[in-house]
Simulated assay, not measured.
Amino acid sequence: MRKAWHSIREYEVLRAMILSGTTISAARQLGISQSAVSRALASLEARLQTTLFVRNGGRLTPTAEAVRLNDNLDTLFQALDGIEGKDRGAPEQLVLRIGAPPTMAHRFLHSRVIAFMRAQPQYRILFEICDSDTLLLRIAEERLDIGVSDLLSRHAGVRITPFRRSHMVCAIAEDSPLRDVEVITPEHFHDLPIITPIKRHSLRGNIDRMFARAGVSPKIAAEAATIVSILELVKANLGAAFINPFPIALSAPEGILFRPINQEMEYRTSFLTPIGAAMSAGTRSFMRYVRSGVKADQWSEPIP
């Protein structure tokens, strides 16, 4: 019987493809040609007699078999690093690189980072605050170990683990003409102004689609890049805003009221981790601290 053989280069291509999602990016990462990446991938699939990637919107998305194989390769590459004298795992075990968008970082995650640091003083924390698109890219490129966000987009190199569910609400000022309305509808805004996220914000698309379905063209009084900035304008009664209440509702801003809306707009706040890297003990421990540190509120609920 012919013995099975293994190709380190093919496995390197697999990991690079899971991280980048395109043969061009994988080739650039490995310093080889695009055709060499394609050949290595085809050879690996033929040898394993399984499909490892499927095309999805111009990108190659890894199958469950590819993800499982990649997870099993962690031990192999750690052993190779040890042989080469790199032993990269040892020093990095005491560093945890965390990322989050501004609102998530300032209104929720800072307290969880502080709790984790006090309980796990052996870890040095690198805490990066960036927009959701940048966060997604940094996670996929393994420049961050874990992120926390409610972003709606996905990346082939990012594992998404939801832990909190919430629904869109309308934020109004205490002296808003809508203060006595129990449930807000898009039709309330034929004549009233709204404050929206800027167009590249992940929340903006949901808001635009909601009004389009209702046949309403609201008056947009202002656009802002962060939810905190939006709520400052709402507080000044310059308009209402449609937002994800988590984590803002955990410490509701003074002068702001939240009202449910007649739309089923669900948001899932999630942990983001690189698919191409094994989840470290520090990452898993931080996830537990985040889950356990969420206070109860009427606008969100845990996802087991």
Rank of each mutant, 00 (worst) to 15 (best):
T50W: 00
T51S: 12
L52K: 05
F53C: 10
V54E: 10
V54A: 07
V54S: 06
V54P: 02
G58T: 09
G58F: 06
R59A: 04
R59F: 15
L60K: 09
T61Q: 13
T63S: 12
A64E: 14
A66K: 10
V67S: 03
L69P: 02
N70W: 00
N70Q: 15
D71R: 15
N72Y: 03
D74C: 02
F77K: 04
F77H: 08
I83S: 03
I83H: 11
G85F: 07
G85V: 05
K86I: 13
R88W: 12
R88L: 14
P91S: 05
P91N: 07
L96P: 02
L96N: 06
R97S: 15
R97W: 04
I98D: 01
G99Q: 04
G99V: 08
G99N: 09
G99R: 09
A100P: 06
P101S: 11
A105F: 01
H110E: 12
S111Q: 14
R112G: 02
V113K: 04
A119Y: 03
Q120K: 15
Y123G: 04
R124A: 12
L126F: 07
S132R: 08
S132H: 14
D133A: 14
L136V: 07
R138M: 15
R138P: 03
E141K: 14
E141T: 13
R143E: 14
R143K: 15
L144I: 08
I146A: 05
G147E: 03
S149L: 05
D150V: 00
S153P: 01
P162T: 02
H167A: 12
V169A: 10
C170Q: 04
C170A: 15
A171L: 00
A171I: 00
I172G: 07
D175G: 00
D175Q: 07
D175T: 08
P177C: 03
R179I: 11
